[in-house]
Nucleic acid binder design. Structure first.
Length: 499
RNA sequence: CGGGGCGUAGCGCAGUCCGGUAGCGCGUCUGGUUUGGGACCAGAAGGUCGGCGGUUCGAAUCCGCCCGCCCCGACCA
């Protein structure tokens, strides 16, 4: 019997926000840094990011993209070159103005100060995103249509000085990838932006087991400087939506601002068409809020840093020897099949304590090996999502990958069902208001296209248009009128309260 | 930046009203006994009580100023 200890994780039903924070703490994914709003990604969280990077990077390469690295610092004047872009980011950029410190003779925190004689002639901004510096370089590299398309990606950190931050979801500094491409025609750029949206969707569904809606952002939600922004939206367990990725058709806005031109086959001079697209460590926040439960993290097997943990159980020294030997063998066998496995041989903890710990860290499968199992030539396999059954040692190398694959599928299925249960289609104004006031979720309805309606709805319900959904997500029947103002509908929209 | 709350051991807190040896739980360390769902016993380490100043014989406690953090509102992946 587990003694009723103080619950370390606040139940979701009591306080979702607290629950989220507790899950991250207990799973040791990340921690707050001494700098307000910044995050330390701990080994487990970073391993998960590495697994995400590995999968995404392979997908980028498979679609013809190459990695490069552009610098952290951007001349302040660059940011100002594209008018809409600078307006979008001006309020949240960090600026470097000096190159050295000097001693003040005072003690403590005031012992040093920026040396006035080291002031930079032109301040540098710390990249909030890299369009400006990348397209400044593209202008040098692109001469002719033969240089196109140029398909680059970079993995890096960016800084956006946010007022309110939350681990993974919104931090001052975060890790991401940003793809930047240049094309000869608008159609090619559009195809690229759409292709990447598909890549992101596949990654999020197949690897993260996180179902997404894809579609177009309205002008009020699009990226500053883009022609069009496509996005992916996923519904979290608190019925708020998270934007889990964006892909922009930048048109020729940056090409014109940075003079990125190429000679056509016919000998003319044209501006290129650009795209940019990114996903960030925010994905980890989405993953947590999609699958995890009141016992802690639930990691989808394909992205679980540890997929299987082996917990040996024994009383006597004799038993310990036999059990550990069997456990080592199991670990070796599983490693050979490519499973990420850990044997928890710590002698100072009781098995139950280990169960709780690994559950909090989201390990999909736990193999318990005790004297009875050894005698029977089996292990006891427990799933993070529930259920426990013996598995013969001979079958293990086959059964473990099978169970992992099943769990991966079941998580996506469960998340999809949950999303559909919290979606409402063809809403009327009153239904919409009631829905957003009560449980919330994805509300599908007609939209007249006016920014006024959008703003009114946001004021009244805190809900915003997440996307104008792509065809595969639209309702069977297109709405005829705007669910808010009753004027003719120009597109179906999906509203939700959002992160 | 506006409204609210809080700074005491690694973490969570009591003590502050009413000044008088700085405490509790968890965790950590040592030793022993334990181990099929959060072990137990014994011992130990660990503190400029956010900072500076004031009142006082004496301040975690009273007064003043400052600093930091969390939650809620306006920006955002």
């Amino acid at each position: 019997m587990p003694p009723p200890k103080a619950q370390k994780i606040t139940p979701r039903a009591r306080d979702f926000s607290e629950w989220y924070t507790d899950v991250i703490q207990q799973a040791e994914l990340a921690d707050h840094s001494p700098v307000r709003g910044c995050m330390v990604i701990r080994p487990l969280g970073y391993r998960m990011w590495e697994l995400m990077q590995g999968a995404l990077d392979a997908m980028f390469k498979a679609t013809g993209h190459e990695n490069a690295y552009f610098p952290l610092f951007i001349p302040q004047s660059f940011l100002a070159r594209e008018a809409e872009h600078v307006e979008g980011f001006a309020k949240e950029v960090a600026i470097v103005t000096h190159t050295r410190l000097r001693a003040t003779g005072k003690g403590g925190a005031g012992a040093v100060e920026p040396d006035p004689s080291s002031a930079l002639e032109e301040p540098l901004v710390v990249r909030p995103t890299s369009e400006t510096i990348i397209y400044a370089m593209f202008a040098k590299w692109i001469q002719s249509y033969r240089d196109l398309p140029l398909l680059l990606n970079q993995w890096c950190n960016v800084v956006r000085w946010e007022f309110r931050t939350r681990l993974f979801l919104r931090t001052t500094e975060f890790l991401w990838q940003e793809g930047h491409t240049a094309h000869a025609t608008e159609a090619e750029a559009e195809a690229e932006a759409r292709q990447i949206l598909g890549v992101y969707r596949r990654f999020q569904e197949e690897w993260m087991a996180m179902p997404v809606l894809t579609g177009l952002k309205t002008p009020s939600e699009k990226f500053a400087g883009a022609l069009r922004t496509y996005a992916l939206e996923a519904l979290m367990q608190d019925n708020k939506s998270i934007q889990s990725g964006t892909s922009h058709n930048l048109g020729q806005n940056f090409a014109k601002a940075f003079n990125v031109q190429y000679q056509t086959a016919a000998g003319g001079l044209e501006h290129v068409w650009n795209t940019s697209w990114g996903v960030s460590t925010r994905l980890i926040g989405g993953l947590i809020m999609t699958h995890s439960d009141d016992n802690g993290l639930v990691a989808p097997p394909r992205l679980a840093p540890i997929q299987v943990v082996i917990v040996p159980i024994y009383k006597t020294d004799d038993e310990q020897r036999g059990v550990l030997q069997a456990a080592e063998k199991v670990r070796g066998d599983l490693e050979k099949t490519g499973v990420r496995v850990k044997l928890d041989g710590r002698p100072e903890l009781k098995p139950g304590a280990k169960y709780f710990e690994w559950e909090a860290r989201g390990v999909p499968l736990r193999l318990e090996i005790g004297p009875r199992d050894v005698a029977a030539g089996q292990v006891t396999m427990a799933r993070r999502t529930g259920g426990k059954a013996p598995v013969r040692l001979d079958d293990l190398a086959a059964k473990v990958p099978e169970a992992l694959a099943e769990m991966q599928g079941a998580l996506l299925q469960a998340a999809r069902e949950r999303r559909e249960q919290h979606s409402i289609r063809g809403v009327t104004k009153q239904e919409f208001i009631d829905f957003m006031k009560a449980q919330g979720g994805f509300a599908y309805g007609g939209f007249c296209g006016s920014a006024e309606c959008e703003a009114e709805i946001k004021d009244a319900t805190a809900a915003t248009i997440r996307v104008l959904p792509d065809p595969e997500f639209r309702s069977p029947e297109a709405p005829k009128t705007c669910m808010w103002c009753g004027k003719p509908s120009v597109a179906e929209a999906v509203w939700a309260q959002a992160y």
